[in-house]
């Protein structure tokens, strides 16, 4: 089984880590270089973890488990106005990133108010491209209850956050509800506030585990990191994409950050060692995010094989 981990250390000799991961059959999901430091998000076979740990100890680096690595989470606020940003939304997004997830922040166009809050088809479809969503609401019980219409049609698990204690049974469409983090005008710094952020991470982790469990019932034809590796190798233009993460991983596929019209055929033609092309084992369609390419790997029940 592949285990998600995060390496933090000096830039010097970090190539050794990358090489070792590749030799062991793991994947480097993301590489962030900040001046003389580098952060690598890695998937590594769990039985080989001690080998990697030994090398990292030698390099004086740090290796921690990143339970959310390889997933994309949407952090949704009713709007992008000063009432909701920056404090709560940025704190949650940053905390999710530190645990390895790729986090996108979204403000709805008309998500405000108790009676007038609404979400449109485009916003719903965009959130559905993620693996999980966190909806950030305010301090009033009645408003949180009424805003259920915003996430009723979302198919990915939705973690709702808000101020007051509300019984989960009152919010049937939410995957989980995390209290004590409503609208605040300061950054989270007290131990209790950090504890609430931890419980959001746990909740998102459970939501992703549920999706993973659903996938194992009908496994994907191949794993998303393998598709990522093949696309990176065979569509070299992806390295010239300006995005910090040119290929974003999801639990059910990848998002290639290249223009759909120009590159869809190149992505479809990506061939694996087994002789099949990506077009045969996945649906390739335009993403709702800019004009990117969304790759969704088909399950074994549709293709008839796993590799």
């Amino acid at each position: 089984m592949l285990e998600p981990v995060m390496f933090t250390g000096g830039l010097y000799k970090h190539d050794l880590v990358v090489e070792l991961v590749e030799d062991l059959g793991g994947y480097v999901l993301q590489k962030n270089v900040t001046q003389s430091e580098v952060i690598l998000l890695i998937l590594i076979p769990s039985e080989d973890k001690p080998v990697l740990e030994a090398l990292i100890k030698e390099l004086r680096g740090e290796l921690v488990r990143a339970p959310l690595a390889g997933t994309e989470v949407a952090v949704v606020t009713p709007t992008l106005a000063i009432h909701h940003l920056p404090h709560t939304a940025c704190d949650i997004a940053e905390y999710l990133r530190r645990h390895g997830s790729k986090t996108n922040m979204m403000g709805l166009a008309r998500g405000v108010g108790r009676e007038i809050a609404q979400i449109n088809e485009y916003e719903t479809a965009l959130i559905n491209e993620h693996d999980a969503a966190v909806f950030i609401f305010g301090n009033f019980r009645e408003c949180i209850r009424r805003k259920e219409s915003l996430y009723r049609n979302i198919t990915v698990p939705v973690v709702v956050t808000g101020g007051p204690e509300i019984d989960k049974s009152e919010l049937p469409y939410a995957f989980e509800y995390v209290s004590s983090i409503g609208r605040v005008a300061h950054r989270a710094r007290k131990a209790t506030e950090i504890g609430t952020l931890d419980s959001i991470i746990e909740s998102v982790g459970r939501a992703l585990d549920k999706t993973r469990a659903d996938i194992t019932k009908d496994p994907l034809t191949t794993s998303p990191p393998r598709v990522m590796d093949a696309v990176r190798e065979q569509v070299p233009d992806v390295e010239y994409s300006y995005s910090p993460l040119p290929i974003a991983l999801n639990l059910g596929g990848v998002r290639v950050k290249l223009p759909y019209e120009r590159y869809k055929d190149a992505v479809k033609a990506v061939t694996f060692d087994e002789g099949v092309t990506l077009g045969e084992i996945a649906t390739i369609r335009p993403s709702r995010m800019k004009d990117y390419i969304l790759v969704r790997i088909l399950p074994a029940s549709e293709t008839g094989y796993i590799f």
């Binding site: 305010g138 301090n139 009033f140 019980r141 009645e142 101020g163 007051p164 204690e165 409503g182 609208r183 605040v184 005008a185």
Partner: peptide, 12 residues
């Protein structure tokens, strides 16, 4: 029944 909201709005 908005005791929590009242307290938080005061801080806000």
């Amino acid at each position: 029944q908005e005791d929590f909201g009242t307290k938080k709005y005061r801080e806000l």
